[in-house]
């Protein structure tokens, strides 16, 4: 009960703060606030997009949760999504035009393998050469991001398009739509399934248990005969595969082509979601919906009234800033 009270207090505080910011920076704060809160649900298009964004965020957040649970920090999410999406798209373009379900499956699998491979490099380096995965994944990501930019805008650029993009995938590669004309496809179902499966593995199966023990105390894990090679590489592999899946799904459901920088931010948001969800795959679902709502909310507020791009950044930043703060002393946690 006190939990609910805490949350209620906090939410009131949230609303007051957001409203105060809007009062300060927007010429029409009331309208901006209404657009921000209800905008995502004002028409089917926005609602569908909210779900579509949430779906991708769930997958990213779940993946990061797994590596966090193993005590590993993967900062290379940005490139793992982006590069594997490009590889997936290229494979899709190489397949015959009417590949349909089979083609979609191949694209997804190839992207997952690419993402997993990139992340595994960091895992391998960590295990074999004791190079911190945080830094190796970050540097590899920095290099791969611009390499992918280069490949998209030069080698594989669609010369007919003015965007920096590859050619579009044929329509048989589009995932079935749920709420036309929005971007929502069956991704949301895939995302929830992935979260559930990984939750089950993590909390109900021996492998997941061993991995969590490894994450909490490496010496103890060694003592218990838990393979440190396995649980350094596997979590990052799963994490990378999730990012690859997210990239592939963004391509197959929304973009249909790899556009320069299209996935920017999802890697970071994955980390944020995992942290909010306390590394629990199931809890990434509400956390992802919250971030997706903030994202779509700021977009509709921008489209509807006079909230500018930088105001939307400020609002998003404030919400991130507040989300983990605990404004009331938690007496029990004082030890």
């Amino acid at each position: 009960m006190s939990r609910l009270l805490h949350s209620l207090y906090l939410i009131v505080l949230f609303i007051v703060i957001i409203f105060t910011i809007l009062l300060l920076i927007s010429p029409e704060p009331v309208m901006a606030f209404e657009d921000f809160v209800t905008g995502p649900f004002s028409n089917i298009y926005n609602t569908g997009n909210l779900f579509a964004i949430a779906a991708i965020l769930i997958i990213c957040g779940t993946g990061v949760s797994i590596s966090f649970q193993a005590g590993l920090f993967n900062l290379g999410g940005e490139a793992q999504i982006y590069s594997s999406a490009l590889v997936g798209t290229l494979v899709g373009l190489a397949l015959p035009e009417g590949s349909g379900f089979f083609g979609i499956l191949v694209v997804i699998i190839i992207s997952m393998i690419t993402g997993a491979a990139i992340a595994t490099i960091s895992g391998f380096l960590r295990y074999r050469y004791h190079i911190h995965e945080l830094i190796s994944s970050f540097l590899l990501s920095g290099g791969l991001l611009s390499l992918t930019d280069f490949l998209i805008s030069n080698t594989f650029r669609d010369s007919k398009s003015f965007l920096q993009t590859t050619s579009k995938l044929p329509e048989s590669f589009y995932l079935p739509s749920i709420l036309p004309p929005s971007n929502l496809t069956i991704t949301i179902l895939i995302a929830c399934t992935v979260a559930c499966i990984l939750w089950f593995w993590l909390y109900k199966m021996a492998g997941g248990y061993e991995m969590r023990v490894f994450g909490l105390n490496k010496d103890f894990a060694e003592f218990g005969n838990i393979s440190s090679r396995r649980y350094t590489i596997l979590p990052l592999m799963i994490n990378g595969a999730c990012f690859g899946l997210a990239g592939a799904l963004m391509i197959l459901s929304t973009q249909h082509a790899a556009i320069v920088g299209f996935s920017a931010g999802y890697g970071w948001n994955g980390i944020v979601i995992a942290l909010i969800a306390a590394n629990n795959p199931i809890m990434t679902i509400p956390a992802a919906f919250l971030l997706a709502w903030v994202e779509t909310g700021t977009r509709t507020a921008m489209a509807g009234s006079s909230v500018s791009l930088e105001m939307s950044e400020v609002i998003r930043g404030m919400i991130l800033l507040m989300i983990t703060l605990r404004f009331f002393k938690n007496r029990r946690s004082r030890s």
């Binding site: 939990r3 609910l4 805490h6 949350s7 209620l8 906090l10 939410i11 949230f14 966090f68 005590g71 920090f73 994450g215 909490l216 995992a274 942290l275 909010i276 969800a277 306390a278 590394n279 629990n280 809890m283 509400p286 956390a287 919906f289 919250l290 709502w293 989300i323 983990t324 605990r326 938690n330 029990r332 946690s333 030890s335």
Partner: peptide, 24 residues
């Protein structure tokens, strides 16, 4: 490191997640 949750910390982070639910 700061991204590892255990014991008390985990419980208090569950509050964050719970708060998210209420908020939604």
């Amino acid at each position: 490191m700061f991204f590892l949750f255990s014991g008390n910390a985990e419980r208090s982070h569950k509050i964050t997640a719970f708060r998210t639910l209420t908020f939604l």
